[in-house]
Simulated assay, not measured.
Amino acid sequence: MGTTWSIQFVAQDAPAGLQGRVQALLDVFVAELSHWQDGSLLSRFNRAREGSWHDVPSRFFHVVAAGLELARETGGAFDPTIGALVDLWGFGPRPAAALPPPETAIDAARQNGGWQRLEADPLAGRLRQPGGLQLDLSGIAKGLAVDEVAALLEGFRLRSFLVEIGGELLGRGLRADGLPWWVDIEAPPASALLPTRIALHGLAVATSGDYRRYFEQGEQRFAHTLDPRTGRPVDNKIVSVTVLHESCMIADALATAITVLGPEEGLALAERKGVAALVTAKAGPIHVEMLSKAAAAMAE
């Protein structure tokens, strides 16, 4: 997945074999869901022949189904089938042929993608490749990995821990000093805002931002979060979105969806879902923070 993982936990002794079990779980995770590994199950599905059905593991089907559900709810603002667009803009495993891509290439990638084209058979646990469709689960899979590592730790009878994978976190129980797992959500660079400190007590947190991966052409900046509805990087004044939820997978996906939808529609989605969301957006030369009702209640 191109990132790192870490775990902190409270126990008198480290459970035997814990690190190996976590790494083995994540290795299987990558083998199934990585957009960056040519031999992964996801990459093989992306290359599969038109019209072919594929039996997939329960984890694979679960995360795709969750992505499709959010795609329906957001009108395609979140879309797990944007792999071709991600590659086209140079945010995938290989450099882009041209940046920004030509309009014809963007149109072609959009036509090959689209969540409506992906057929899922929940009874059989299988997916149909309609031809040319490329899955990319980067906006949701990392959160699921956090959830699965947390479940593994609970299987080792650990009750107080903090899991982190690539900046997505989930905390359970309390630290050894009796305090919650405090984490700081960094303020965007060049802003006058202060970091936001939150307590992860039975909660996960995921952040989507436009200041980590981007490229510039002249005076124009292109961030890595793409709007599947236009085929282009988002340009709606949002700088970062942080979402808290019991499930890191859901927090991860919602952070992406809110980023694409923009401040007003994104916060409306957070209100409908009843989740705590912190949106940072540009307002002329300054940055402003906006909270969903659930986030404002947590801040009081």
Rank of each mutant, 00 (worst) to 15 (best):
G2Y: 11
T4H: 12
W5T: 11
I7V: 15
D13T: 15
G17Y: 02
V22P: 04
L25F: 08
L26H: 05
V30R: 12
H35S: 12
D38C: 07
R44K: 10
E50V: 09
D55N: 10
S58A: 15
V64G: 00
A77H: 13
G90Y: 04
G90T: 00
F91S: 07
G92E: 03
A97I: 03
L99R: 12
P101T: 03
A105L: 05
D107V: 13
Q111F: 08
E119I: 09
P122N: 03
L123D: 12
L127A: 01
G132A: 10
I140K: 03
L153R: 09
V163T: 02
E168H: 12
L170D: 03
G171P: 01
R172G: 04
D177A: 09
L179Q: 15
W182M: 12
E186F: 05
A187N: 10
A190C: 05
I198A: 07
H201F: 06
H201C: 11
G202N: 05
V205T: 11
Y211A: 10
Y214S: 14
G218W: 13
F222R: 14
S240L: 04
I250F: 09
A253T: 04
A255T: 06
T256K: 10
V260F: 08
G262A: 04
L278Y: 11
A281D: 00
H287N: 11
V288H: 12
L291W: 15
L291H: 13
K293L: 11
M298G: 12
